[in-house]
Write a protein that binds this DNA or RNA. Structure first.
Length: 897
RNA sequence: GCCGAAGUGGCGGAACUGGCAGACGCGCACGACUCAAAAUCGUGUUCCCUCCGGGAAUGUGGGUUCGAUUCCCACCUUCGGCACCA
């Protein structure tokens, strides 16, 4: 570049340029070039001199003078940056060189960076780029920091969409899936990520699902897989059962297709996730977002209380769970769920007809109707009575739809005085209400207007009258604790914990999934397929039912086999596993995707596990992220894996919405196709834009114009590095010092932000530094050692975010040794980063009135003296002594007048 | 109803120890270059006033403090999750 522009960016107030206006320090005025003297427009406007400095530098005048100088400057112009060519070239070379192959290296610390594997729906969209590209940048950062980084990728390939496509278009799910994988692989490669493709795993490959089946058998052997008849959620559109986690929203719809689910009584396979409920509530070893921990905690829904045995008049025990054993003396009736097994037995002949009618009515109601909170409670008296074990009161037994068979024991003691639902019910059916907790300090209460649920003193409670009860739950509440002790002593109840969490229903009545490797024999019942016969392969020759019913069930021969125990003819389970089972262990298959002596090579396991950083969407908080933790703990207890947790650090990105601020979907037509953007702007621009435009954990609506900003930035980088500058190495000492300071300050910030997943500020710091480097170049910094250091550090910081342009400029422009991605992350030179002069604002009565510039090491006294010497301060003081002067070192001076 | 997160210019966002609010970028306006456009470069861009200067402002109202986007209290709004959970 022939003529450096004689201009200063007057807009910026960044630390490189300090325009100081006090009389005392007026001379201290710096730009990165160290020799600019013009009063800048903004400064003139903002902090206009009070000291008689000429006001002739008006906006117009200064703008004009700049205009003149611009004419002599050649604008930065570049046409040679061709992202497409550069990106394709380097991607091919990196692949040929196996630059991202991750192999065990005991001389280095390992870092397992994992990003959630994509489902093989056909197209890689923004939902994939947004988590993956920044995760890749961070993995690259870790690698440059000396870690041996594993950043694998694979495909979640089983599941319904493939089967639906098969039904709709007559393509075999396998064909549809593997065609999609091919396309997605190409798209993923266009991202330029450091994926180690030799570790790719596909969950629908027999060499993969063989081990998914094997894991099922291990769970079975551990007693954690069982078959049970129960009322399960069924999606009529997907034609399959669903796990409770897969039923979402207040309309209780299928997580995948949005169809309201119905209940069906079916015998299905479950995993005993509840066995680990307590351990899953422990997040001590995890660096996970608070949000996710709260979601999982609420999902598991632990409540502490007591289990108490009531009895029917015939002596049958009725177990109930209560969080308020302190209110046992106020139980004036009992309520059973209509499906409760004792209903038949306690119902009297006179009430039988009413009870049967009510049960029939409830059975007709959908779950949504039945569980609507605002619905008025209904119920029917059974005619039977129970005995309250604490006071031997004879209380009526009702059935009502507000008691659910699926929670607790399906029976409750009703304490209308201290439970809102029971109160409402008692009022409606005119049942007695007995108050047993009185708010402290109040006299004996009159008639209750509403249930009292606060703390107080126990009354009408026999031996416990006068006992104080606070608002705490469980044993933490001394009143409740005393009652529990007494219940245990009397042998009528005990401390108990109840969970909202349910066992994981894993049976799916579908074809495209890993077969459940179980065999049923009339004589020997259910037994696992012998492990040496795995995998149970899916048959290819199947016929699709338009109804969506599993073709496995109708296959003429597939299910026929022999019993592994007696050798007689037997049948296979025709259900397949929930695909969440496949994804519960994919991070283990990446370790050795072709290993055939087990699900993973233990040598690889010992080196790489656990996953150090896991990135993906928060929508999996109570599904995949909970399943995989359960899976790991169960396999730990089976002696197959080690440690308590599979993924130590978790970070969730937000969601990119469409331009219309709605979720991207084909039907809305607001889907942004990454392929087109890569074509138009290049991968580097797209990657950096995704990092720059949002707080990564928040996401937000897509702004089609925003990407121009990062594309422009990359072009400006290109221009700075490729324009031959003929300016001599003429920079002043101050310019060079300032350049180094800015480089090392930026490095410090960028390093910190990478560690913290704060990608947007990484890019903005790099943009700022580029602006400073342009100024330094104008001031003749090119050719100096400081400039060379700046360019080298700049490209190294750029390498993780924009790997292609960084490589091109590094290798071909600077002529440094290939590859930049194998270089070490630069070290911060703290001395260089240190400011030697700092500008301090002076506040008078809380408002900034002036600024002074002092040496960074100035003492409090010196700063105070300098501040009080300011003309402006003197004006405000008006000859008086300041009431108070506060010097916040390195921050500001605050004067109270 | 319960649990959680978030409210900052026209927009995305920054301010990481309680210390200069609005960095960086988008958009927009004006100017340069161009036959023209694009690209590029430059300047400006929170709001208000009497435009010299000053005032107000980080969802709202209070509080602590020399000083609050940051801490405390109350409330409002938006988003996410759970929801008759005994």
């Amino acid at each position: 570049m022939a003529t450096p522009k004689k201009k200063t960016n007057t807009k910026k107030k960044s630390t490189v340029k300090k325009t100081v206006k006090t009389t005392k320090t007026k001379a201290v005025k710096k730009t990165i070039a160290g020799k600019k003297t013009s009063v800048t427009v903004k400064a003139a406007k903002k902090a206009a001199p009070k000291t008689g400095t000429s006001k002739t530098t008006t906006k117009r005048a200064s703008a004009k003078s700049k205009t003149v100088s611009t004419k002599t400057a050649k604008p930065v112009r570049d046409i040679s940056y061709d992202p497409k060519a550069i990106e394709q070239k380097w991607q091919a070379k990196w692949e040929a060189d196996k630059l991202y192959r991750a192999v065990i290296d005991y001389s280095k610390p390992k870092h397992y960076a994992l990003t959630m594997l994509p489902y093989t729906s056909g197209d890689l969209h923004f939902g994939h780029w947004y988590p993956m590209a920044p995760s890749d940048a961070r993995a690259r950062f870790k690698r440059m920091n000396g870690y041996n980084v594993l950043f694998p990728i694979g495909f979640d390939a089983f599941g319904l969409p493939a089967e639906n496509a098969a039904i709709k278009r007559g393509i075999h799910p396998k064909e549809w899936t593997y065609k999609n994988i091919e396309n997605m692989r190409r798209q993923l490669k266009s991202m330029g990520a450091m994926f180690d493709w030799e570790r790719e795993a596909i969950t629908a490959d027999p060499e993969y699902y063989k081990w998914t089946e094997w894991f099922f058998i291990q769970l079975y052997k551990q007693g954690l897989a069982y078959r049970k008849m129960s009322a399960v959620d069924w999606c009529p559109s997907c034609n399959t059962t669903l796990a409770r986690e897969q039923v979402v929203g207040e309309n209780r719809v299928c997580e995948r297709c949005g169809t309201p689910v119905i209940k069906k009584n079916l015998e299905q396979w479950f995993f005993k996730t509840t066995k680990y409920a307590d351990e899953l509530l422990n997040f001590d070893e995890l660096d996970w977002p608070e949000r996710v921990k709260v979601l999982q905690t609420n999902w598991i829904g632990r409540s502490e209380g007591a289990s108490v045995i009531f009895r029917t008049e015939a002596g049958d025990p009725i177990e109930i769970f209560t969080t308020r054993p302190d209110t046992l003396w106020g139980a004036t009736f009992m309520v059973f769920a209509p499906e409760h097994p004792l209903v038949d037995k306690v119902t009297t002949p006179e009430q039988r007809e009413a009870v049967e009618a009510y049960r029939a009515q409830v059975a007709r109601e959908s779950d949504i109707e039945r569980e609507a909170v605002d619905k008025e409670k209904t119920g029917v008296f059974t005619g039977g009575y129970a005995i309250n074990p604490v006071n031997h009161a004879r209380i009526p037994i009702w059935i009502a739809d507000y008691v659910l068979m699926s929670y607790g024991t399906g029976a409750i003691m009703a304490v209308p005085a201290h439970d809102e639902r029971d109160f409402e019910f008692a009022r409606k059916y005119d049942l007695p209400i007995v108050q047993v907790i009185k708010p402290e300090g109040e006299s004996e209460a009159g008639e209750l207007k509403a249930a009292y649920v606060g703390p107080g003193v126990m009354i009408n409670s026999g031996p416990f009258d006068g006992t104080k009860v606070n608002a705490e739950k469980g044993r933490k509440n001394p009143g409740i604790s005393a009652v529990i002790d007494w219940l245990e002593e009397m042998g009528i109840g005990k401390e108990a914990v109840n969970y909202r969490y349910r066992d994981w229903l894993i049976s799916r009545q579908r074809y495209w999934g890993a077969p459940i490797p179980m065999i049923y024999c009339e004589k020997d019942g259910w037994n696992p397929v012998p492990e040496d016969q795995l995998p149970v392969l899916l048959p290819d020759d199947v016929e699709w039912k338009p109804t969506g019913e599993s073709p496995l069930k109708f296959h003429p021969t597939w299910k026929n086999t022999t019993c592994p125990v007696c050798g007689e003819p037997a049948v296979r389970e025709t259900d397949t596993m929930d695909t969440f089972m496949c994804s519960s262990w994919y991070h283990l298959r990446y370790l050795s995707p072709h290993y055939d002596k087990g699900p993973f090579d233990p040598v690889e396991y010992d080196y790489w596990m656990p996953v150090d950083t896991y990135t993906g969407g928060i929508e999996h908080a109570t599904m995949h992220l909970l399943y995989t933790r359960f899976f790991h703990k169960a396999m730990r207890d089976a002696g197959i894996v080690k440690g308590n947790e599979p993924m130590i650090q978790l970070r969730n990105q937000g969601i990119i919405l469409g331009e219309d601020n709605e979720k991207m979907s084909k039907s809305r037509g607001n889907v942004v196709a990454p392929d087109e953007l890569v074509e138009k702007y290049g991968t580097d621009a797209l990657r950096t834009y995704l990092m720059f435009a949002y707080r990564w954990e928040e996401g937000g609506p897509w702004n089609p114009q925003g990407i121009d900003g990062t594309a422009r930035w990359l072009r400006r980088i290109w221009a700075l590095f490729t324009d031959a500058s003929d300016s001599p190495a003429s920079a002043s000492v101050e310019t060079k010092r300032t350049l180094r300071r800015r480089v090392h300050q930026t490095l410090k910030r960028v390093t910190r932000d990478f560690e913290n997943f704060e990608f947007n500020t990484i890019i903005s710091s790099l943009m700022e530094l580029l602006n400073d480097m342009y100024k330094a170049r104008e001031a003749g910094a090119v050719g100096t050692p400081e400039w060379d250091e700046a360019t080298e550090i700049y490209l190294k910081m750029l390498a993780p975010v924009a790997p292609h342009i960084a490589e091109e400029l590094w290798t071909n422009q600077l002529g440094k040794p290939y590859s930049i991605h194998q270089q070490s992350w630069p070290q911060v030179d703290e001395e260089a980063a240190r400011e030697d002069m700092i500008e301090l604002p002076i506040q008078i009565n809380g408002k900034v009135r002036d600024r002074i510039t002092v040496p960074a090491g100035a003492s409090e006294e010196e700063i105070k003296a300098a501040a009080l010497a300011s003309e402006i301060v003197k004006k405000y003081l008006d000859g008086k002594e300041p009431k108070k002067v506060i010097v916040a070192k390195g921050r500001l001076v605050s004067i109270v007048v």
